[in-house]
Design a protein around this nucleic acid. Structure first.
Length: 710
DNA sequence: ATAGGGTTAG
């Protein structure tokens, strides 16, 4: 017996966690202010983003009758926006007389609307400004271009022509903003044209190009421009470094990343937070997490991104406990988590199926006010669902305003995991009715759901709708779903034909789906052929060898079965050990196959014997095709010692009568265990919930929620 | 005017 998840300490220490922000004490209010004095106060308030101070300053400006002073008025507009109250800025602006609004007033407001991600409103004010006869200057254009970048490219093009009309196209600030705008609108060609025609460039112009390449996934371009900066001795700054390192991280360019690390050290920029964090992320994503950890240990001033990179790193290394632990350490060190922290750590909690963890994190989300963020909500849905609580997942979904595709897809996937394939289709149709555009992953879920209910025709209809209605081209995952769909329905020849007719290069999952179907329908001949292909594509996947060996031994072709197993060993592969775990009284107990390490082993095996006897009375016959050994008797015994059955026996022994038994497993559950769980749920009148690597099985009254499709 | 980390699948 081992206990997992040593995460408990965080429970009681929650109230000792540091506060999320440290508000600075308000300055003592003097009696009389000069305009300059008030302006200084405005600048201080902008720094501290203190809305109370903003209101006080506003009052003082009114009592001193300074509202007609343009520079104070303009700065007040900016101040309210910077304090997060853009609506007050708008109100202030609307109350002012037309003639008192100069180009700076308009530009201030447009800048703030741009920053607050209200691009359409920014454009509206830009047009209003021009219709009232105020001419935009280079600052106005620099402010409106980022807003254009957040909309459709036509707006940007129109502004571009205005820029030329007013003769600002060679201004370094305006042109850099133009480069950025075209890059964000995915037009690197235009961005490059503007860049090439600039008579004078600064580092910002160069960085805008690097960032543009990065955002458009043209990673080589990003690296190329970075190299040019070095060659021309322009002195890259932290913006250049963080962007180019992100490019390296996303493509796994470890060598380039290391070179850039060297340059950062030489230039003395290694101390900067952005540079260090990007380097950590680069090492982590390039597969040498150890180097990322080393770097992490040298960082004294860790900010939220530093921690997020670490938490993400543990997630990528499948160490979800460590990921959760790092999250709580971050909290205790006084760093406030943000939406990225929450979505990452929820992902970890979901994979641990640790509902207590997930709930604690949900508390934190509510306290910090990140609960409205769509990434966070989608992760919450998935967390609850993977922790077994579909009801909570649905609740989060229903309470969500402005759901996006990811949110919908998360809910669809939740229903799919819990065996509600009909609900998947309903939700998908609802989503379409609301005008939401499904994405690549949505279709994976929907097609997969069709496969699990045997709806072949519907599946094909949805598959065809991808190209015909939604203007998307199916990817390898979708083809795999279709092969799976046909395979499950027993239409093996069609499945094979389909797999061979795929217009793109089919990946392992396509043939994997077909191999699974061959196993389920006992087609050894096709199985051999498909397995051969798979051994070529993914020689290191032990699952394929196991499947083929089992198919051979099922047919009594033991010599060949052994040969496949020998091949597997020669390749240095082992079947992943199955393990199951179960929570009893806030403790997690983990069992492997034939586990005898628990102190109550004798009782457990006695209970297992009882279960066996009772289940056999109900007409159960061992499904030895799922076993590895060759001798019938051993086969059956080895089946009885599968980890989920041991966990079931332990649950029956230790959990109160009538309480549901929740078992989690690291692999797919086998057919034999599935049958036993079904019968056991009936004879013990207990709800048994098994979460395997793919989905939930909720057994009750002798049947399973998955409808025997999994 | 430019910047680092994240969400949904199998």
């Amino acid at each position: 017996m081992r206990t997992l998840f040593p995460l408990k300490p965080t429970h009681k220490k929650l109230h000792t966690l540091p506060p999320y922000s440290n508000p600075s004490p308000p300055p003592p209010p003097p009696k009389y202010f000069t305009p300059t004095h008030l302006n200084t106060l405005i600048n201080t308030a902008i720094q501290s983003k203190n809305i109370k101070h903003a209101t006080q300053i506003h009052t003082q400006i009114i009592t001193h009758s300074y509202m007609s002073l343009p520079f104070l008025f303009n700065n007040l507009v900016t101040l309210y926006a910077k304090c997060g109250h853009i609506n007050r800025s708008l109100k202030l602006f609307s109350k002012a007389h037309g003639e008192s609004k100069n180009v700076i007033t308009w530009t201030s407001l447009i800048t703030q609307l741009s920053h607050h991600k209200k691009p359409l409103q920014a454009l509206e004010f830009f047009n209003q400004m021009r219709s009232t006869g105020v001419y935009p200057n280079q600052f106005t254009f620099s402010a409106i271009l980022p807003a254009c970048a957040d909309t459709v490219i036509v707006h940007g093009e129109q502004v571009h022509s205005l820029i030329c009309k007013h003769g600002y196209e060679f201004d370094v600030f305006v042109a850099s903003a133009l480069v950025d705008m075209y890059a964000k609108c995915s037009n690197m060609c235009y961005a490059g044209n503007v860049f090439d025609e600039m008579p004078e460039r600064n580092l910002v112009s160069w960085n805008a190009m690097i960032v543009g390449f990065l955002q458009n996934k043209l990673y080589d371009g990003a690296v190329g421009f970075f190299r040019k900066i070095i060659r021309e001795r322009l002195g890259p700054n932290q913006v250049s470094f963080s962007s180019v390192l992100s490019a390296c991280a996303n493509t796994g360019m470890l060598d380039t990343g290391k070179q850039i690390h060297g340059v950062a050290v030489k230039q003395g920029l290694i101390t900067l937070a952005y540079v260090k964090n990007s380097l950590m992320d680069m090492y982590s994503k390039c597969g040498i997490f150890g180097d990322a950890v080393k770097l992490f240990q040298t960082i004294g001033d860790r900010d939220v991104v530093t921690w997020n990179v670490m938490v993400m790193g543990w997630v990528q290394n499948d160490n979800f406990e460590k990921a959760c632990n790092y999250f709580w350490v971050m909290r205790r060190e006084g760093v406030s988590p943000d939406e990225a922290s929450f979505s990452t750590v929820l992902h970890a909690a979901a994979n641990l199926a640790a509902l207590d963890q997930g709930t604690l994190i949900h508390d934190q989300i509510i306290k910090t006010g990140y609960g409205r963020n769509m990434c966070v909500r989608s992760s919450l849905i998935t967390m609850y669902e993977k922790c077994g609580s579909l009801a909570d997942a649905r609740w989060v979904f229903q309470e969500s305003e402005h759901r996006n595709v990811v949110c919908w897809t998360a809910m669809i996937s939740a229903c799919q995991h819990h065996g509600h394939a009909n609900r998947v289709i309903e939700l998908f149709e609802e989503m379409l009715e609301e005008g939401m555009k499904p994405d690549y992953i949505t279709f994976v879920c929907v097609l997969s759901a069709c496969g699990h209910t045997g709806c072949v025709e519907e599946g094909f209809a949805y598959f065809n709708s991808m190209t015909e209605i939604h203007n998307m081209s199916p990817g390898p995952e979708h083809y795999a779903c279709m092969v799976d769909l046909l395979g499950r329905a027993g239409r093996l020849q069609e499945a094979k034909k389909f797999a061979e007719s795929i217009p793109i290069k089919p990946n392992a999952s396509v043939w994997g789906a077909l191999l699974g179907a061959c196993r389920n329908h006992g087609d050894l001949e096709m199985g051999i052929e498909v397995a051969e292909r798979l051994f070529e594509i993914e020689p290191n996947n032990s699952g394929n060898y196991v499947l083929l060996a089992n198919m051979y031994s099922h047919r009594g072709r033991l010599a060949e079965a052994n040969e496949v197993r020998r091949l597997m060993r020669v390749n240095g592969l082992r079947k992943e050990t199955g393990c199951s775990w179960i929570d009893v009284k806030n403790k997690t107990f983990i069992f492997t196959t034939q586990d005898r390490s628990h102190s109550r082993t004798n009782e457990i095996y006695e209970m297992l014997g009882q279960v066996e006897e009772l289940v056999k009375k109900k007409g159960y016959v061992a499904e030895t095709q799922h076993a590895i050994n060759d001798v019938e008797e051993y086969k059956e015994r080895s089946l009885w010692y599968h980890s989920e059955k041991i966990a079931l026996a332990f649950g029956l022994l230790t959990l109160p009568i009538g309480a549901p038994i929740r078992i989690k497993k690291n692999l797919r559950t086998c057919g034999d265990c599935h049958t036993v769980m079904k019968i056991a749920s009936e004879i013990f009148d207990r709800e048994i919930i098994v979460r395997d690597i793919n989905r939930f099985h909720r057994f009750s009254g002798g049947s399973c929620s998955c409808g025997d499709y999994w």
